[in-house]
Computed example of a mutant assay.
Amino acid sequence: MKGIPLRSLFKKSLKSTFSIVGLEIESKENKKGVLPPVYETLDEAIYAKNIGLSVAYNCPLEKCVTPTGFSFSEDRFHPFVTALEEINNHPQTPSYLGSFLERYYQAWTPENGRGVYPGFNHAPDGLRAVSAITIHSPWMDATPEHRQILMERTIAYENATANHPELPFSAGYGLHGPVTPEKGQLEFERLLKVNRAIKEKGYDRTISKEDITAIAIERTGEYRFCIMHGQHRMAALAALKYRQVPVNITKLLHYNEIEHWPQVYRGVWSTSQARAYIDHLFDFESEKWAKQQRLIK
Results as ranks from 00 to 15, higher is better:
residue 117 Y to R: 12
residue 55 V to T: 08
residue 24 E to H: 08
residue 4 I to C: 11
residue 143 T to V: 06
residue 157 Y to Q: 08
residue 158 E to D: 15
residue 240 L to H: 14
residue 48 A to I: 04
residue 106 Q to K: 09
residue 108 W to F: 15
residue 94 P to L: 04
residue 56 A to P: 02
residue 166 E to R: 07
residue 38 V to C: 14
residue 217 I to N: 02
residue 52 G to Q: 06
residue 149 I to D: 02
residue 269 W to F: 11
residue 148 Q to C: 10
residue 51 I to Y: 13
residue 35 L to I: 09
residue 214 A to Q: 01
residue 286 S to R: 05
residue 130 V to C: 11
residue 100 F to L: 02
residue 59 C to F: 07
residue 168 P to L: 09
residue 124 P to V: 10
residue 243 R to I: 03
residue 20 I to Y: 14
residue 144 P to Q: 00
residue 140 M to W: 14
residue 7 R to D: 05
residue 33 G to T: 01
residue 62 E to I: 05
residue 156 A to L: 05
residue 142 A to E: 12
residue 65 V to S: 12
residue 227 I to N: 08
residue 247 V to W: 06
residue 190 R to Q: 09
residue 216 A to S: 03
residue 205 R to G: 00
residue 127 L to N: 10
residue 223 Y to A: 07
residue 216 A to L: 01
residue 190 R to P: 07
residue 59 C to A: 12
residue 230 G to A: 00
residue 251 K to V: 11
residue 128 R to A: 13
residue 94 P to I: 01
residue 277 Y to L: 05
residue 145 E to L: 06
residue 114 R to D: 03
residue 68 T to L: 04
residue 131 S to E: 12
residue 197 A to P: 02
residue 250 T to G: 15
residue 137 S to R: 07
residue 66 T to Q: 11
residue 80 F to N: 10
residue 154 T to R: 14
residue 193 K to I: 02
residue 137 S to V: 14
residue 137 S to A: 15
residue 251 K to T: 12
residue 35 L to E: 06
residue 145 E to W: 04
residue 241 K to F: 03
residue 165 P to F: 00
residue 200 E to T: 01
residue 114 R to I: 04
residue 214 A to I: 00
residue 65 V to F: 12
residue 205 R to A: 00
residue 105 Y to D: 12
residue 152 E to G: 08
residue 169 F to D: 10
residue 103 R to H: 13
residue 186 L to M: 12
residue 7 R to W: 06
residue 79 P to F: 02
residue 218 E to G: 01
residue 261 W to I: 11
residue 49 K to C: 02
residue 183 K to G: 11
residue 115 G to R: 11
residue 225 F to W: 08
residue 180 T to E: 08
residue 67 P to E: 03
residue 1 M to C: 03
residue 142 A to Q: 10
residue 218 E to P: 01
residue 214 A to R: 03
residue 64 C to Y: 08
residue 24 E to A: 03
residue 75 D to H: 11
residue 124 P to F: 09
